Lab assay of single mutants.
Amino acid sequence: TEDEKKIQELLKRANGDVSKAEKLAQSQGNEELARRLREYANK
């Protein structure tokens, strides 16, 4: 999905570090994506 692409892109930029990727999403003002990242990471 589009969200998964965004999540994978963020994870790439954060070198696979979920908490960093989450902070990136939040810094972009994207709380929804940050929440999805957390769920994605907890799979």
Rank of each mutant, 00 (worst) to 15 (best):
E9Y: 05
V18T: 05
E9H: 06
D3P: 06
N15L: 06
R35K: 14
L11W: 02
K20W: 10
L33V: 04
L33F: 05
N42G: 08
K5C: 11
K12D: 11
G16S: 02
R36H: 08
E39K: 03
G16K: 02
A25N: 00
R35Q: 13
Y40W: 14
A25L: 10
D3S: 08
R35L: 12
Q28Y: 09
N42K: 13
A21Q: 01
K6F: 13
R13Q: 15
R13M: 15
K23W: 12
E32M: 06
E39D: 09
Y40F: 07
K23I: 10
E2I: 13
R36Y: 09
A25E: 02
L11S: 00
G16V: 00
R36M: 15
G29T: 02
N30K: 06
Q26H: 10
L37G: 00
Y40E: 03
S19A: 14
D17N: 09
G16M: 05
R13N: 09
E22W: 11
A14S: 07
K6H: 10
V18A: 08
K6P: 05
L10V: 05
N42A: 14
D3K: 05
V18Y: 15
V18H: 05
N30A: 07
V18G: 02
N42R: 12
K6I: 15
A21I: 03
N15V: 02
T1M: 12
A25G: 01
D17L: 04
V18C: 06
L37H: 00
I7E: 01
L33D: 04
S27Y: 09
S27E: 15
E39M: 05
L11T: 00
D3G: 07
K5N: 09
R13D: 08
T1Y: 14
R36G: 04
Q26W: 12
G29E: 04
I7A: 04
A34F: 04
D17I: 04
E22L: 15
N15Q: 09
I7G: 01
A25K: 01
L24N: 03
A14T: 14
K43V: 09
D3C: 13
E4P: 04
A34T: 03
Q8W: 13
R38W: 06
E32R: 06
E22K: 03
Q28A: 11
E22G: 03
E32H: 07
S19R: 14
L33A: 04
D3N: 08
L37W: 00
E31Y: 15
Y40P: 00
I7N: 01
N42Y: 10
E22N: 03
T1D: 14
A34K: 04
E4T: 09
E2Y: 13
L24R: 02
A25S: 02
G16H: 05
K43D: 08
R38F: 03
K12F: 10
E39G: 03
E9N: 06
E31G: 06
L10G: 00
E2V: 10
N30Q: 10
K23Q: 13
R38G: 03
Q8N: 08
G29C: 03
S19K: 14
N30V: 03
K20N: 05
D17K: 02
K43I: 09
V18W: 15
K12G: 06
G29N: 05
L24F: 07
R36A: 14
K5L: 11
A34I: 08
A25H: 00
A25W: 02
D17R: 02
Q28H: 07
N42L: 14
L11Y: 02
L10T: 03
I7R: 01
R35C: 10
E4M: 12
L11K: 01
N42C: 08
R35V: 10
V18E: 02
V18S: 04
L24C: 05
A14M: 08
S19V: 12
A41M: 14
A14P: 01
L11C: 12
Y40M: 12
Y40A: 04
S27A: 14
A25F: 02
R35M: 11
L37R: 00
L24M: 13
A25Q: 02
E22D: 02
E32P: 03
Q8K: 12
K5D: 12
K23E: 12
R35P: 01
D3I: 15
K23V: 08
D17F: 02
E32D: 11
K5H: 10
K12P: 00
L33S: 01
S19L: 13
Q26R: 14
N42W: 09
S19Q: 12
L24I: 12
N30C: 09
G16N: 07
Q28I: 11
S19P: 05
R38S: 05
N15R: 07
N15D: 09
E4Q: 08
K20C: 12
R35Y: 06
N42D: 10
K6E: 15
N30H: 08
V18P: 08
L37Y: 01
G29V: 02
A34H: 01
Q26N: 07
E2N: 11
S27N: 09
E39I: 05
E4D: 13
E31T: 10
R38H: 06
S19D: 13
E4H: 09
A41R: 08
G16R: 02
L33Q: 02
L37P: 00
D17Q: 03
E39V: 04
I7L: 12
L10M: 07
Q26L: 15
K6S: 11
I7P: 00
N30S: 08
Q26C: 10
N30F: 13
E9A: 09
L10W: 08
D3T: 13
L33M: 06
E22Y: 13
R36D: 05
R36E: 07
V18M: 06
G16A: 02
K23D: 06
R36C: 10
Y40L: 11
K5R: 14
Q26M: 15
K23L: 11
A34W: 04
L11G: 00
S27P: 01
S19W: 14
D17Y: 02
L11D: 00
T1F: 13
A21T: 00
R35G: 07
L37M: 06
L24H: 05
E31N: 08
K20S: 06
A14C: 13
K20P: 01
L11F: 03
E39R: 03
I7V: 07
Q28K: 05
G29F: 06
K43S: 11
L24P: 00
Q8G: 05
L10I: 10
